[in-house]
């Protein structure tokens, strides 16, 4: 491979994705810059509605061009994905980028056998014969930890449990050994024990194929267990980015710190949990300028925020948006604030 000398093979530059709502375009993803290297898991975290899935489907080119406006550049192994036509994109999807979706119950065609659904991706990207494809299906099912591959290959989705279906979707995503795997909440619908197994499978596959993984989740525990690097997303923007240890051990941005503090943990057993005031703004209500997180930390004076918040490298590639993190503190009246929300 040519790319092996340059580690980073996915470079997202200034990407924005806007949806058309009532004839007007609104940004769901705004000016995102990210890169992914081989052999690394990059986690994207944030509350529901922050634009994580939108970013993922933008990379996959799955948006309806008539309903969305996408700008920027997605440099993937030397080509700008955003300049590809449908035919060119189809050579990338499934072959070089595999995607895993959140809901394993609906992501498989209910009327097709598992075997056919896995083979389909190879039909379009390889010259394998039917026999070779079958062999590969069995190999893949083994790899994702399905106990009886021959039997499962012949079954239909409704005969499998949620955890098994998610494994099938992983098998499809990795069938052609893609360089990049995008996993959008791959374990949200699953039990903790199955979640742990699925994450193991993902990690093993990544080691084997030297793939890069974008792991999208809102579960900070999952991030802490698996991610090499973490990007925290809020209201369509990346607000903090760094290694897992930077994010978990020295979180800087108020949003990151707030999220971490709202998790039930061993050391806050019986106390009230920290609640972030307000909620993620809808696309139409997104603040046009200034720090988008400012309305949710109203006790921090406006002067602490930048008027046009920029990403700042605070050392070792640890990036933080806005300078407000320097003045951020948690209000002492946490307990009174809990359970009350301004509507």
């Amino acid at each position: 491979m040519v790319e092996t000398n340059t580690d980073q093979f996915l470079n997202i530059k200034n990407v924005s994705t806007a949806f058309k709502i009532n004839g007007q375009y609104y940004d769901a993803v705004s000016n995102v810059n990210l890169e992914v290297k081989h052999d690394e898991i990059l986690a994207i975290v944030g509350e529901s509605g922050c634009g994580k899935s939108t970013l993922a489907t933008t990379i996959m080119g799955l948006h309806d061009p008539e309903e969305t406006k996408i700008s920027g550049e997605i440099d993937f192994e030397g080509t700008d994905l955003l300049k590809l036509d449908e035919k060119g994109y189809n050579k990338v999807r499934g072959a070089k980028i595999g995607m895993i979706f959140q809901d394993p119950l609906s992501a498989l065609n209910p009327l097709k056998r598992i075997e056919d659904q896995i083979q389909e991706v190879m039909v379009y990207h390889t010259k394998m014969t039917e026999k070779e494809r079958h062999a590969r299906v069995i190999e893949l099912l083994n790899q994702v930890g399905i106990e009886d591959p021959d039997r499962t290959a012949h079954q239909f989705p409704h005969q499998l449990s949620g955890g098994m279906r998610q494994r099938i979707i992983i098998a499809i995503a990795i069938a052609c050994k893609p360089d990049l795997i995008i996993a959008d909440e791959p374990t949200t619908a699953l039990d903790v024990t199955i979640q742990a197994q699925i994450l193991d499978v993902l990690r093993d596959i990544q080691r084997e194929n030297h793939a890069g993984i974008i792991l999208i989740t809102h579960d900070l525990g999952v991030v802490a267990e698996t991610a090499d690097r973490v990007a925290v997303m809020y209201a369509g923007q990346i607000v903090e980015q760094g290694t897992a240890s930077q994010i978990f051990n020295e979180p800087k941005h108020p949003y990151t710190r707030s999220l971490l503090r709202s998790m039930p943990q061993r050391d806050n057993e019986s106390d009230d949990l920290y609640v972030i005031q307000g909620m993620v703004p809808s696309l139409q209500k997104m603040p046009k300028q200034g720090d988008r997180f400012a309305p949710r930390i109203p006790w921090i004076p406006a002067s602490a925020h930048e008027t046009e918040p920029k990403m700042h490298d605070i050392g070792d590639n640890h990036l933080v948006r806005c300078t407000c993190y320097k003045d951020f503190y948690f209000p002492d009246q946490v307990k009174e604030g809990a359970g009350h929300e301004s509507n």
Partner: peptide, 15 residues
């Protein structure tokens, strides 16, 4: 629910 909303509901139930 999301983390922050979860915190809200749990606190509330305790209250």
């Amino acid at each position: 629910l999301d983390l922050s909303v979860q915190a809200q509901v749990l606190n509330f139930m305790k209250k």
